[in-house]
Design a binder for these strands. Structure first.
Lengths: 111, 111
DNA sequence: TCTCGTAGTCTAAATTGTAGACCATATAGT
DNA sequence: ACTATATGGTCTACAATTTAGACTACGAGA
């Protein structure tokens, strides 16, 4: 039974950013991707809080990564992965948006 | 200077639904469009509250419509229109989403 | 006049989005 | 060895968005 709500706007972008990064989907990378793609600043708080919420909803999972060559942080890196549930949500949001944008290309493609 | 946040997920869909309806963009029609496109129920509260918020942000304007043939409600109908500001926001959201979806078509197109 | 359907307002609560302070560890420089 | 700096992440608290549902009003038809 599909949940009654859609993904929030930020949740959606976060999930997409993880997919973009694939194997490299750990914190800092994903966050950077997000900032680049949206052109806005993403605070740590916003970022990790949303990540955790997404996990508790089952749209996301993560594993601790072994420290690879050259890394020098203090805590273990988390590697993120979107679950099938998460992908299904993404598809639903996308389908709705696509349908609502139909025929509006002229208007919606900015400068 | 552009606002620092994006449109919420529902706000975005609402604006799109108005654009879709064009001349017919008054309450009931827009709401119906939304319900059809998303497949979920949109309560009056959700709908009008968001409409008003969008207006106060300047992304939307409305006018009272003269009662045309056949209409028989009690209150005057409101006809909605997306402002240029609103369109600009829509473009920003769309651009970000598009960039984040790049190359993921395989994954994002559902059944 | 009673009832139904249309339109819209209002209140309150749940969910999302956001910032920023704080913790811990490693590396570089002195 | 000691300090500064950078990395990666946790936590708290608050602001904004989303949502349901009760309530008001009016017209038309039985």
């Amino acid at each position: 039974m599909p949940p009654k709500t859609f993904l929030g706007e930020f949740e959606q972008m976060l999930l997409l950013a993880i997919l973009q990064k694939g194997e490299d989907a750990y914190g800092v990378e994903v966050r950077r991707e997000l900032e680049e793609a949206t052109g806005r600043k993403v605070s740590r708080g916003a970022f990790y809080t949303t990540l955790d919420r997404l996990e508790s909803k089952g749209y996301l999972r993560w594993t601790s990564r072994p420290v690879e060559g050259g890394w020098r942080g203090g805590l273990p890196q988390r590697h993120f992965e979107v679950t099938d549930e998460g992908i299904a949500q993404l598809q639903r949001s996308r389908a709705a948006l696509e349908r609502l944008s139909r025929g509006l290309d002229e208007i919606l493609v900015g400068p």
